[in-house]
């Protein structure tokens, strides 16, 4: 249960908002749930809903609306390549294709070891350092910019190593 395991963190989140507006804590609590369970499970929705005094469908609709929440399990890490217009002008689409080839997946797919899901995403405010991607995992979201296929494969190796040590 989130409420038992992360009591202090939950209190800190709730304290950011006026007590009569607990619902504002929905988004940070969803992040917490996702970090705990890997994706936002049905049980987690219920837990978050109870913490903020909303109903489960309200919380569930947020998961569908915002792209950084996932209601289905994916790879341990989501490698999200920006293929939006400014990055595409600097070769991001070719980069994404080649990286997928190297990883043996299609865009949207997960590597056979279940480690990496590769996705194409919209602008990440790093257009001047394309090709670039972010990695979303249990430890948050981190940027990797000015990438080549080689440097990206190194990032992937590091992720695999990190996860086998975890």
């Amino acid at each position: 249960m989130l409420a038992d395991k992360h009591r202090a963190e939950i209190e800190a989140i709730l304290a950011k908002y006026p007590p009569e507006h607990r619902r504002s804590a929905a988004m940070p609590l969803l992040y917490l749930a996702q970090q705990e369970y890997g994706h936002v499970t049905q049980a987690a929705l219920q837990e978050v809903a109870e913490l903020i005094g909303a109903d489960r469908t309200q919380v569930g609709s947020l998961v569908g609306f915002y792209t950084l929440y996932h209601d289905q399990p994916g790879g341990t890490y989501r490698l999200q390549i920006c293929t939006d217009l400014p990055c595409a002008l600097r070769g991001a689409e070719t980069f994404a294709e080649k990286l997928c080839e190297n990883l043996g997946v299609r865009l949207g797919g997960t590597t056979p070891d279940g480690m990496i899901t590769v996705e194409g995403v919209m602008c990440l405010a790093g257009c001047d350092r394309a090709p670039m991607f972010q990695v979303q995992g249990a430890d948050g979201i981190h940027y990797h910019e000015n990438q080549t296929v080689e440097s990206a494969m190194k990032v992937v190796d590091d992720l695999r190593r990190k996860s086998s040590h975890a």
Binding site: D84, L85, P86, M122, C123, A125, G126, C127, D128
Partner: peptide, 11 residues
């Protein structure tokens, strides 16, 4: 929220 494609100044 800086999300307009091509915008990275606020960051």
């Amino acid at each position: 929220d800086e999300s307009e494609p091509g915008t990275f100044k606020d960051r």
